[in-house]
């Protein structure tokens, strides 16, 4: 007889695409879809917040406050994961500013990266931690696999010491998928981050199935191709059946497609607008879509 533990239950559920809904996120608001981190069973809301370009506002006080409002709306909607990198200019101190202004929300799941060709990744991670003003990061990923061998060693040591909780690797726009696969097979990483959306579907071939097989959580970056995809679709009409799948906009249509893939844990769209952050989190409510519907969605976009 198979004994079902919390870990195996969560792992199986995550792999089979089962969704969990956090009850009572905000009064009257639908609770966002939750997905499990396979290596721990920890539940995370399936829509996170990316900060590439959008949070790089420098010392501009008006724009810093706007970013803080976006963070506030994100947490109010039930979001948790905020993702950044030392590569993103001033995004890290801007996140720190927003978190400080909001009184350090306890819901935060902090996802950072190490991005340096220098051997001492720990020093950069410490600098990033100071920018955020958090006691420790939940997740640190090797950004674009720069110096990955050295940094993975550092990150696994930090995880063992309890200085971070999870270890991950990242890429974007289909780069270095072969190396990604090798690392996933050889190292016990918790998360991988890559680009995946209704038109960039290369990850479906090997990496997303492998993530399910290896129990690796998947973060999806650039869901809207840095806004290019939504701008491209802006003038097009949503299909009649979009309402049936709970998509009221192209952004929600795209996010629904991504989040319905059973291997995807969190998508991290970036935005500067409070209404968009709410709309994005709302995409993680309602029914999940089966493979046939996802193919129908991809075909519809392809034929536009």
């Amino acid at each position: 007889m198979m004994i079902i533990t919390r870990r195996t239950f969560v792992k199986t559920a995550a792999a089979s695409g089962a969704a969990f809904v956090l009850p009572g996120t905000a009064p009257g608001a639908p609770a966002p879809l939750m997905r499990a981190v396979p290596s721990s069973g920890e539940m995370l809301p399936a829509v996170g917040l990316g900060t590439w370009i959008t949070f790089n506002v420098g010392d501009d006080p008006v724009l810093r406050d706007e970013c803080a409002e976006v963070i506030a709306a994100f947490f109010e909607a039930g979001g948790r994961m905020i993702d950044s990198s030392p590569m993103y200019g001033s995004s890290q101190p801007v996140i720190g500013y927003g978190l400080e202004k909001l009184g350090r929300p306890k819901a935060l799941f902090s996802a950072e990266k190490v991005w340096t060709s220098a051997a001492d990744g720990a020093a950069q991670i410490e600098q990033s931690r100071r920018f955020w003003g958090v006691p420790r990061f939940d997740l640190v990923q090797v950004h674009n696999l720069v110096g990955w061998e050295t940094h993975l060693e550092t990150l696994f040591a930090m995880k063992a010491d309890g200085r971070i909780r999870y270890v991950g690797i990242t890429t974007s726009e289909g780069r270095r998928h072969d190396l990604f696969e090798q690392i996933m097979r050889a190292h016990p990483i918790d998360f991988m981050q890559l680009t995946y959306n209704v038109v960039d579907r290369e990850a479906e071939e090997r990496l997303l199935p492998l993530a399910a097989e290896r129990g690796v959580a998947v973060i999806v970056n650039r869901p809207f191709q840095q806004g290019a995809l939504t701008r491209q679709l802006e003038g097009e009409t949503l299909p009649d059946w979009a309402a049936e799948i709970g998509a009221g906009s192209w952004a929600q249509f795209i996010l629904k497609f991504i989040l319905s893939h059973p291997s995807v844990t969190v998508a991290i769209p970036a935005t500067t607008r409070v209404d968009h952050v709410r709309e994005n989190v709302m995409a993680a409510t309602g029914p999940l879509l089966d493979a046939a519907m996802r193919e129908r969605m991809a075909a519809y976009v392809r034929d536009l």
């Binding site: 370009i53 959008t54 790089n56 506002v57 501009d60 993103y88 200019g89």
Partner: peptide, 17 residues
């Protein structure tokens, strides 16, 4: 475009500031 780290709005507001 992959090397662009900021938005046009941030860039031009930088000159304003």
């Amino acid at each position: 475009e992959d090397f662009l780290l900021f938005s046009p709005r941030v860039y031009w507001r930088m000159f304003e500031l």
